[in-house]
């Protein structure tokens, strides 16, 4: 059965109603998720509220095939990044147009894509055919409709002439956190005042981990930009939607995505807004795989739906002799 994906992006339909439709569909057609829900006693018939929908561990993308389509092959496969020998998540994207629409609708809402030049300081598609980030860059570069939008060559200085040549539009420079820091170290160019730098995470790679606030300060200094122009993106191979931080403080998801904080000791328990927990996400754009994902990130969700991400959740379990000082 084909799902009419237009309704996912239709903000006139309540999020709860759209969620319910996606849940019913995935329960029917995504076998691992159905088995998971049934084992927890949750079925479309028993579900009284969408808040009772269980979140599926993101690890499942490494262990099983999460998709609703019965087709032998899918047009697009995303894999999480990882070093050799590491198990990688595999996200089979049955309908590329949903991903494309998810990227473009929200990005355009925030950044006026047609008035922007997209510069991506990331490896190209050829080197990373399964990277969702690179695919997103490709989509944005192409959709910008501007021939100056491009992947920048890695480990090369920014070209001031190339930057100056874009003065009629806003430059949006994308890149992984440390990649962008490296770029500030090898380049001595000034980005125009209107430019925006969007870091896509990866603050813990080949160097020490640095807090996001410090990262933004360093990028701000390095690119001679106001801190207001340093933004962040939160996305991953397992999700077909992205959230953006444009105020330096919190990520805001699109209207077809919601984030929740879950009690790390009890994945069935949502925490009240403002409390730190394990992030769980409903991403309706994942309609053909699984939309109800329990991530391995820690963060906090505010009452307005915006959220912060602290990094990977530490399940340094409160067990064994590892009870430190009592928690009052």
């Amino acid at each position: 059965m084909k799902f009419h994906t237009d309704q996912i992006f239709n903000a006139h339909i309540s999020f709860e109603e759209r969620t319910r439709q996606v849940f019913d569909y995935q329960f029917e057609y995504c076998k691992p998720y159905r088995v998971f829900c049934e084992s927890l006693g949750v079925t479309p018939d028993s579900l009284s509220s969408v808040s009772d929908i269980p979140f599926y561990p993101i690890d499942g993308f490494k262990r099983t095939t999460l998709r609703t389509s019965l087709a032998e092959s899918v047009p697009l496969i995303f894999k999480s990044s990882g070093t050799s020998g590491m198990e990688r998540s595999v996200h089979q994207v049955a309908d590329e147009s949903v991903y494309r629409r998810s990227i473009l609708e929200y990005f355009s809402e925030l950044y006026h894509l047609k008035e922007s030049v997209i510069l991506a300081y990331t490896p190209g598609y050829a080197e990373n055919p399964h990277s969702s980030l690179i695919h997103m860059m490709e989509v944005l570069i192409e959709a910008s409709g501007d021939s100056r939008s491009a992947f920048l060559p890695l480990n090369q200085k920014l070209n001031q002439a190339q930057i100056d040549d874009c003065d009629d539009k806003r430059i949006i420079l994308f890149g992984a956190a440390f990649g962008l820091l490296d770029l500030t170290e090898i380049s001595e160019v000034r980005l125009p005042e209107s430019a925006v730098v969007i870091e896509t995470g990866g603050m813990k790679t080949h160097r020490r981990e640095i807090p996001r606030v410090e990262l933004h300060e360093r990028l701000s200094e390095g690119f001679c930009l106001s801190k207001d122009n340093i933004h962040s993106e939160y996305g991953m191979a397992e999700l077909l939607s992205q959230s953006y931080m444009t105020d330096g403080e919190r990520f805001v998801p699109p209207h077809w995505m919601r984030v929740f904080a879950i009690d790390p000791q009890n994945p069935m328990q949502r925490l009240p807004s403002g409390e730190t927990g394990q992030l769980a996400i409903i991403d309706l754009a994942n309609v053909f795989s699984c939309s109800f994902i329990l991530t391995e990130d820690e963060g906090r969700v505010e009452a307005d739906g915006s959220f912060t991400v602290n990094g990977r959740i530490s399940k340094a379990t409160m067990r064994g002799c590892n009870f430190l000082i009592d928690r009052d």
């Binding site: 829900c37 927890l40 269980p54 099983t64």
Partner: peptide, 13 residues
């Protein structure tokens, strides 16, 4: 609940 959740997940994979 955490154990039940894990059991359900294990079953699904």
């Amino acid at each position: 609940d955490a154990t039940l959740h894990r059991i359900a997940y294990n079953k699904s994979i």
